[in-house]
């Protein structure tokens, strides 16, 4: 009950802050200049996290959180170095997310994510359904971007995932 109260108060505060103009504009105006949309996994993780903290029955077990952060970290390491211009032009990872650009190449990305999602749901890992949701939401194009990568990953999700991976690695080293 305490969790619900906290969540309601937090949501009310967030709602008020989101409509209070700052220098003439609401916060969304300032934020959307850089980040118009967040990825589907990050949105889902935030919702699940808020629900769990509010006292709802847990949706994710440890292995699901682990799968989510591992996916984010691996995707970030695959995508961002190339997007920053590092590596060969032939490793143009971001262009795989436009299926109409190079159909055969995009198939690699979609097939890889489908394989990960299918494997996770096979093993009853609920993060797999979030990847399925990302693919389904790509079809109608709910984001400003039409690149599939932007439905899977965003810089904030990447930073959180990489931080989690670094912490995990540090913990394991410490235990040795």
């Amino acid at each position: 009950m305490r969790g619900w109260k906290g969540a309601v108060i937090a949501a009310a505060l967030a709602g008020i802050v989101s409509i209070i103009p700052f220098v003439g504009h609401v916060p969304r105006y300032w934020l959307s200049g850089l980040t118009p949309n967040i990825s589907v996994p990050l949105f889902a993780l935030l919702v699940i996290s808020i629900m769990e903290r509010a006292g709802c029955p847990p949706v994710f077990r440890t292995r699901e959180w682990r799968a989510a952060f591992l996916f984010g970290a691996i995707a970030a390491l695959l995508l961002y170095p190339s997007a920053l211009g590092l590596g060969l032009p032939s490793l143009d990872v971001y262009s795989l997310g436009w299926p109409w650009l190079v159909w055969g190449h995009s198939l690699v990305l979609f097939a890889a994510v489908a394989a990960v999602a299918a494997l996770l749901v096979w093993r009853a890992n609920r993060f797999g359904w979030i990847l399925v949701a990302a693919a389904l939401l790509y079809l109608p194009g709910i984001q400003e971007s039409r690149n599939f990568w932007d439905y899977l990953l965003d810089p904030l999700y990447a930073v959180v995932s990489l931080f989690w991976m670094a912490k995990l690695a540090a913990d394991r080293l410490r235990r040795r």
Binding site: W100, W103, A114
Partner: peptide
């Protein structure tokens, strides 16, 4: 069944292309 459903979802997404 879950596996087939997940694969079907991706197949659905890729169908237009």
């Amino acid at each position: 069944g879950r596996f087939a459903l997940a694969v079907a979802a991706f197949a659905l997404v890729l169908a237009p292309w």
